[in-house]
């Protein structure tokens, strides 16, 4: 096995590597041990701090909280994809009157922090239910990022695709709808899904405006006196839920990418425009 940075190890290097491995394991064990010790020492493993999980009403509330998170995610995702498609088309338009405003809108919503956007809708214009502010914020921000993704996807297609389509007599909208967009979406699928993972994670911002989602649940249960204020246990559980949801989505992305790579219909792009966008999906 050879990588860019390291040559195939010789006998001495192998010995050194074993030493590093031993040190690595030691550090890891020490770190985990320390955390476990702190947990035990501060009573985080006490039955009382975990007993909230047993109660039916709390389980139902957890279910509701999870559903609220998923609701914000689903609504946000659908609207963001729509917004993205519309504004990508706008940015690619031949008419300056459409192109310039689309670009300005996309740039603006990408530059403003999502927290500030959500605050504008919740505290600034008082939309009422926190769900509206969360979904609208998620839509505008992620929609703008997705617009960039779609646009990059279309631009990365070989010029021959649109030229051929024009040559057989298709119109602009037909070229876009039947030739360019379907291929672009496939090529950009991994980038689109990573942006959806970002969207899923950002639903947690609803916490800041007291939308009843998972993190809000963590705060409520975490401050229950009768369970000894189990903030640490409940954070761990909620984190596990978030991580598994995001991993499922990421796994879906990898699966789709693999499938589309097998698929002959996809055009191999010369460079991967998706990479930068994916990497930037923070």
């Amino acid at each position: 096995m050879s990588s860019v940075l390291f040559d195939v190890p010789g006998p001495r290097a192998r010995l050194r590597h074993r030493l590093y491995a031993a040190i690595g394991i030691l550090v890891l064990v020490a770190a985990i041990g320390f955390v476990l010790y702190r947990f035990a020492d501060t009573g985080q493993f006490e039955g009382r701090k975990w007993s909230w999980l047993e109660y039916k009403n709390i389980q139902l509330t957890l279910g509701e909280a999870l559903l609220n998170t998923l609701k914000a995610f689903a609504l946000g995702a659908v609207f963001a994809l729509l917004f993205g498609a519309i504004f990508a088309a706008g940015q690619l338009s031949d008419h300056k009157v459409i192109r310039v405003p689309s670009m300005v809108v996309v740039e603006l919503f990408r530059a403003v922090p999502l927290v500030v956007l959500i605050f504008v809708f919740h505290y600034g214009v008082s939309l009422g239910s926190p769900l509206y502010s969360v979904v609208l914020g998620l839509t505008l921000y992620n929609g703008s990022v997705l617009a960039e993704v779609f646009r990059a996807g279309v631009l990365s297609l070989p010029r021959g695709q649109s030229e051929a389509a024009y040559a057989v007599g298709m119109r602009k909208t037909q070229v876009m709808r039947h030739v360019l967009l379907p291929q672009a979406v496939r090529a950009m699928l991994p980038a689109i899904i990573s942006q959806l993972v970002v969207l899923l994670k950002d639903t947690a911002l609803g916490f800041l405006i007291t939308y009843d989602e998972l993190l809000d649940f963590a705060r409520d249960i975490g401050s229950q006196f009768q369970f000894g204020r189990p903030l640490v246990p409940v954070t761990i559980i909620v984190a596990a839920v978030y991580i598994s949801m995001c991993l499922l989505l990421t796994w879906l992305a990898t699966y789709l990418e693999k499938r589309s790579r097998r698929d002959k219909k996809v055009i191999a792009l010369e460079k991967k425009p998706a990479e930068d966008v994916v990497a930037a999906a923070v």
Partner: peptide, 11 residues
């Protein structure tokens, strides 16, 4: 990467 930043803050 799969944990919301708000949750990291919360913790």
């Amino acid at each position: 990467r799969n944990t919301p930043l708000t949750l990291v803050f919360f913790f």
